[in-house]
Amino acid sequence: MGYKITKKENLSAIDFFMEVEAPHVAKSWKPGQFVVLIVDEKGERVPMSVYYAEDGKIGMFIRRHGVTTFKLWYEKNVGDKILSVAGPLGKPIEVKHYGNVVFAADAVCAQAECYATLKAMKEAGNYTIAIHSFENRDNVYPERFLAKSVADEFYITTEDGSVGRKGHYLDVVKELIEQDKVDIVFAGGKLGSLKKLAELTGSYGIPTIVTVRQIMVDGTGMCGSCRILYDGEVKFVCRDGPMFDAHKVDWDDVIKRDARFVEQQNLARERYIAKLREKGVI
């Protein structure tokens, strides 16, 4: 029982890369789809984006957010197993010829999705533009993990300008739109940025498809934990998404629902950190 970890590598001050054997998922995964994993018997079901799926394995980028991801980083090493990997879940991105395609990322899930999406888009004959945004130098990933090899144009931004351009993907997207270089924007990451992106591209009428992140349980459409209001209707992110037209999402509600368990998450994280200290791990 369980799924073996085959690679693990730090990416930055906050994120890491992990590869897991999951042949059932790898066989049918397509860009845009995600998995739900459980670390151990006491674990939570958490959704994760997929960086790649090949040879029976899936790669993931993971942020050290809280208990689940701390367990993955501090307790699980190459050769160890995690309890469950279910997927692929959600609907794949529609890959076709759009023209100039931008993929913008400013948090771990989207950094993961950028490469595979643009690879598929390039193969479908699109001109591809990758924008990876990070807060600062410490958070920037090694370049081989980014989408450079599949991007016709490639940008890294940091808020303090320590690497790449100073600023955020929002600045780059705006510039590109003004140069008339954008037919469609795909994006994911921080919900606050996605809301601003929706406002920005909405004002120019540029189609914008983004990954909506919501707290999930099953990931198969049986609980409604991940519900959002989309064009005035209740939709389940896991079943009907996770990619949606950014202009039809009620962002304020999405952002509020993302914080549903903050108190509990913080409590569990503090408790876990105290345990790590006790054991002398940190």
């Binding site: 670390v39 006491k42 939570e44 349980v217 099953d218 609980c223 509990q264 409590l267 569990a268």
Partner: peptide
């Protein structure tokens, strides 16, 4: 939804949070 509530509680043992990782409020 009752399904979310019951799944968190029964399947994921949220009634034993934080010993179990899944929260419920």
């Amino acid at each position: 939804s009752a399904n979310e509530f019951l799944t968190r509680v029964n399947l994921m043992k949220a009634y034993e949070f934080p010993e179990y990782d899944t929260p419920i409020t």
